[in-house]
Design a protein around this nucleic acid. Structure first.
Lengths: 222, 222
DNA sequence: TTGACAAAAATCGTATACGATATTATCATT
DNA sequence: AATGATAATATCGTATACGATTTTTGTCAA
């Protein structure tokens, strides 16, 4: 038989994955700030492992844009300029409007009910650190029926990259209220099958967040 | 001084990069076919290194979608279904039209001249294996002035993922002729600053390739 | 012959060890 | 005192080695 590998993935505890997930979460929550050096020995000791799985985890985060490597000098938590935030939101708009457009024809009553419940959960959530995650779950729920797994993965990465900066706004209740109002408008358009309207609302929703974040970062840079 | 790392990247020969680049090129050229197992020992011996840089190179290719990992069972060259090809082209259209739209206002005479020369070079290139690369260079040249580096990187990855399948068509001269005609039409619209027309032509150009490739893969699957 | 089980081989995943490179500290010189 | 060269230190990058998991092979009974 010709060389082949039966493509049967199996559950296995991957140390590399654990490290990557932990570091990712810490970067998102702002515990590990931009430009902070990520020393391999330090991380290895912390997890009680050698440097090799640490390196592989860092490589994974590099691919996600959360970490920057400098040859022979190590890795740091990646920093985003306002220009990069603008770029990421432009990409999000391009990809998420595509996802939503393709998802709406396949949205079920169950999807809509679940999305509604999620918005209520956001309203009642006290822990600000959780808002980013719930926010993403709402968006992901609307895009899921499009059945575009690669697109979903990339949109998730884009979301992750701006999420750690968004936390700054989410603490301000006024933005969260606006955001939730926009979420409900999008959901309503989806429910009525008004694809173009829903897509336009989504685009405006993302653009509004982008403008706010870019303005904030430009101000801080000065 | 607080912990920080002067962000001064420096040129250094990275074995991992060399391995990743080599394997990537071989996958693109069809030398390493879909589902072929990539044994770490084998690759390590071939490059005269240990398994560690090999693993890190494979991780990088995994992030690019060219390789799939199975825990404790190794990595294989990723295979694309027709559905995945459709998805990738949908993403390409979303992202590349964005790039072109933002690039056109900044296109210089030099850009246009260079693009023209590249099309001529494609016409005269005999080696079919080179067409994919030149093709990408043409597209990249038109998007470059948008000054969106992350977008460019991701579009490059998307292009890479379908390029190895596209080689199948490029050997057929009739498709290459059609493709080149479309390229020149796009370039002409760019030259005249007709953004909407250029974007529409680009979308049709990509969709035509997508349709052809999807049809081919669906036929082969049966 | 077929199927189930066990032993053997192959392959992966990671720890340890060490050389290479970069950064910091020390000291002589102007 | 400031500057530049040199030594010491820290950190990274990779080879070697080994245990863990999986796949294959071999054996035996039904």
């Amino acid at each position: 038989m010709p060389p082949s590998l039966a493509p049967l993935p199996k559950a296995a505890p991957q140390i590399t994955e654990v490290i990557a997930n932990t570091l990712r979460a810490e970067i998102l929550q702002g515990l590990l700030k931009s430009n902070l050096p990520l020393r391999q020995d330090e991380i290895a000791e912390r997890f009680g492992v050698s440097k090799i799985p640490v390196r592989e985890a860092l490589y994974q985060l590099k691919a996600e844009g959360l970490v920057t490597f400098f040859p022979n000098r190590g890795a740091v938590v990646a920093a985003l300029s306002s220009a990069e935030v603008d770029e990421i939101y432009a990409m999000r708009i391009a990809l998420e409007t595509l996802a939503l457009r393709r998802a709406i024809p396949h949205l079920t009553i169950a999807n809509l009910t679940q999305a509604e419940a999620l918005l209520d959960a956001i309203d009642q959530e006290k822990a600000v650190a959780q808002w980013g995650e719930l926010n993403w779950e709402f968006h992901a729920l609307l895009y899921q029926p499009a059945n575009l797994p690669r697109l979903m993965e990339w949109v998730r990465i884009l979301h992750i990259n701006v999420a750690r900066y968004l936390v700054i706004f989410l603490v301000g209740l006024e933005y969260q209220a606006t955001s939730q109002r926009e979420h409900r408008a999008i959901l309503e358009a989806c429910r009525q099958g008004q694809t173009d309207i829903a897509v336009t609302l989504l685009e405006e929703h993302l653009q509004a967040a982008a403008n706010k974040l870019v303005a904030f970062l430009q101000q801080r840079a000065s």
